[in-house]
């Protein structure tokens, strides 16, 4: 565990906490894309298949459980919770996310480390995670105004993979650890998708103004 990896995990954890806080405190999930949340639930459920077969550390297992349970809880709040499900901007959240699932399945079947059940699902989760933010970004762009907590949620979620890239670079030089090229490529795509958002986030932060995305 190095400082970059820890920073990545913490920003990831923080993004989830900010999102749960937003839904709990404001009793609203407006501005949040259910499509993106469903994709994340699918990402964690398929990536952490090793939760019961490989023990790495208590930290590792706890984080896996946190990411699986929080993503499922958020989907539940948006779909079924009597108070919050009505605040979901259904009409703005029209991204055809099943296309992302389909493309990720095809990519995982073609490009993987080994043709085993677990490795194909792992590759699928990496590809899907790289693009899972797209419905959320489209929803924000459509609604224009972004509330503070939602803006912070997306910011921390984007920062997490950027820290992971630094962690892979660090591990490459210090441990001679060779992260799989699948993670490198998907990690870069994932971080690049946030470039626009990061730009407007920093501009609004510098000007101490409300975050607004151009139409």
């Amino acid at each position: 565990m190095n400082i970059f990896r820890l920073a990545g995990d913490m920003t990831h954890l923080f993004s989830v906490l900010v999102l749960l806080l937003k839904i709990y405190a404001t009793k609203s999930c407006s501005g949040i894309s259910l499509k993106t949340q469903e994709l994340y639930a699918l990402v964690f459920l398929t990536r952490y298949l090793d939760l019961f077969t490989d023990f790495i550390s208590v930290y590792n297992s706890v984080m896996k459980v946190v990411f699986i349970s929080s993503s499922v809880a958020i989907v539940w709040c948006m779909r079924y919770h009597p108070l919050t499900r009505r605040t979901y901007d259904k009409d703005l959240d029209t991204f055809r996310h099943y296309i992302l699932v389909g493309v990720s399945i095809i990519l995982a079947l073609l490009f993987h480390d080994r043709f085993t059940f677990r490795e194909v699902f792992w590759a699928f989760s990496i590809y899907l995670e790289a693009v899972a933010i797209l419905p959320q970004l489209v929803l924000l762009q459509r609604s224009g105004n972004v509330d503070n907590l939602t803006g912070q949620y997306v910011f921390f979620l984007g920062a997490y993979r950027a820290f992971y890239i630094l962690n892979w670079i660090y591990r490459y030089f210090t441990e001679n650890h060779y992260s799989r090229w699948i993670s490198w490529l998907a990690g870069f795509v994932q971080t690049a998708l946030y470039a626009d958002f990061f730009y407007y986030y920093f501009v609004s932060w510098k000007n101490n103004a409300k975050l607004q995305l151009p139409a």
């Binding site: 995990d9 590792n60 984080m63 080994r114 677990r118 490795e119 792992w122």
Partner: peptide
């Protein structure tokens, strides 16, 4: 053949 390496990252 080497065994499947566990994924140590999240």
């Amino acid at each position: 053949e080497e065994n499947e390496k566990p994924h140590d990252e999240l």
